[in-house]
Simulated scan of single mutants.
Amino acid sequence: MALTFELDPKFDRSVRDGIAELWSDVSNAGGAVGFVPPVTAEDVRPELVKHLVSMAEGRTRILVGYDEDGSIAATAFLTHNTHRLMAHWLWIYTVMVHPRHQGRGYGRDLMAAAADAARTIDGIEAIRLTCRGGTGADRFYGACGYKEVGRVPGAIRVSDGDDRDDVIMLLPLG
């Protein structure tokens, strides 16, 4: 069964807590979403608050995917550029699909829904993202139509002696 996507759902406690749980579960499963396991929902909550502040300021929108039980199973944050010369593209951050839903094509569905959502925003011509090298994420995003446009070697320090490339990718929406 496919996920149901909603752009900018009513943000209440259940959505907030569902995203925090999703984020910790994805992190603990090895997902490259800004943390190294083990983490709890409380550990990720300060980062979620940063996204919420940006949402309240109108700079970020959230796309949420719900599974057949109505649980939050996927998210992506679409963030406008604050630089006036780069307002024609936006960032996508914290792209997550719950580990129990991996391998069902939901990641591709999420990325397609994010591109569709971005197309509804006036003046947006492309989506840009970064991902952690060495995880296969760049291959996944490539399969979703993104092109690698840059790479910063060793920019992400996962732990002592484990530095990863920061891979920059772009999806033109035209």
Rank of each mutant, 00 (worst) to 15 (best):
E6V: 13
E6K: 14
P9H: 09
K10L: 12
F11S: 03
R13T: 02
D17I: 10
D17P: 06
I19T: 05
E21H: 07
E21D: 12
S24G: 06
N28W: 04
A32P: 00
A32F: 02
A32Q: 01
V36H: 09
P37G: 09
V39E: 08
D43M: 13
V44D: 05
R45W: 12
R45K: 15
P46G: 15
V53K: 13
M55W: 09
A56I: 03
E57M: 14
G58F: 04
T60E: 01
T60F: 01
E68T: 10
A73H: 04
F77E: 04
T79S: 15
H80I: 08
H80W: 06
N81A: 04
R84A: 10
R84N: 12
R84H: 13
T94M: 06
V97I: 04
H98C: 08
P99Q: 05
H101C: 11
H101E: 12
R104I: 08
G105T: 08
R108M: 02
L110K: 00
A115S: 06
A115E: 05
D116E: 08
A117M: 03
A118G: 07
I127Y: 01
L129M: 15
T130I: 12
G134K: 02
G134A: 04
G136S: 07
F140K: 07
K147E: 15
R151G: 04
R151L: 05
I156G: 02
I156A: 05
V158W: 14
D160S: 13
D160F: 15
D162P: 09
D162T: 12
V167N: 04
I168G: 05
